[in-house]
Amino acid sequence: MTQKKDQLVIAGKPYQSRLLVGTGKYKDFEQTRLAIDASGAEIVTVAIRRTNIGQNEGEPSLLDFVPPNRFTYLPNTAGCYSADDAVRTLRLARELLDGHKLVKLEVLGDPKTLYPNVIETLKAADVLIKEGFDVMVYTSDDPIVAKELENIGCCAIMPLASLIGSGMGILNPWNLQIIIEHAKVPVLVDAGVGTASDAAIAMELGCEGVLMNTAIAAANDPILMATAMKKAIEAGREAFLAGRMAKKLYSASPSSPTQGMIS
């Protein structure tokens, strides 16, 4: 009997890797490429920014190192503080990527914390979905907001584990669990992962994947950390599928036989 492949399916498309990575904050494009290769990620986020005009014509671009025909680009709306700006950015992204529909929506509410503005996020998601985009949405870990985003048609819900770039790990596993339990679309942790154990915990909770950037890019050795994250995601997923033992306080159950002890 062949076992059904355990795949991440987003907007109908299967992916082997459950680790999604950003392409920012690396030392250079070469390091970006090496880290992404080591992570095994198939989906990579990119930002949309003004092109340098009349400067360094031959300057290398991200696209040379992370070719869009090898990876699924996930254009984001990083830096957008209103629904209008986010929608405008992703319309440009769709044009830029030849009609590509899969996008990451994030609308920020505060430059100091980069906490999401869920009201603007909901507005933008509604417009984008009506325009045919497949919206993976960054949001707070509020289960009601997560459900609303799913109800209006987002193809993946991506609550924060903690603030963007903070590396503080999963601060509210209970909320994440509620979101996961109620969601019919994939839930991915986006933001806040600091090290491999954080990624493993997210997966053990039942997340379908994890999106991270700084945890890899800001490690002393980003390429080694990318490998660590790949393993953590796989280990966490397998542990989730395996189903952990029940936690027992004081109900001692030795793993070795109690019979045949020497006396």
Binding site: K25, Y26, V46, A47, R49
Partner: peptide, 10 residues
């Protein structure tokens, strides 16, 4: 005019 491209980002 706005002329944009894809750059590294998270």
């Amino acid at each position: 005019l706005e002329i944009v491209g894809a750059v590294g980002g998270g």
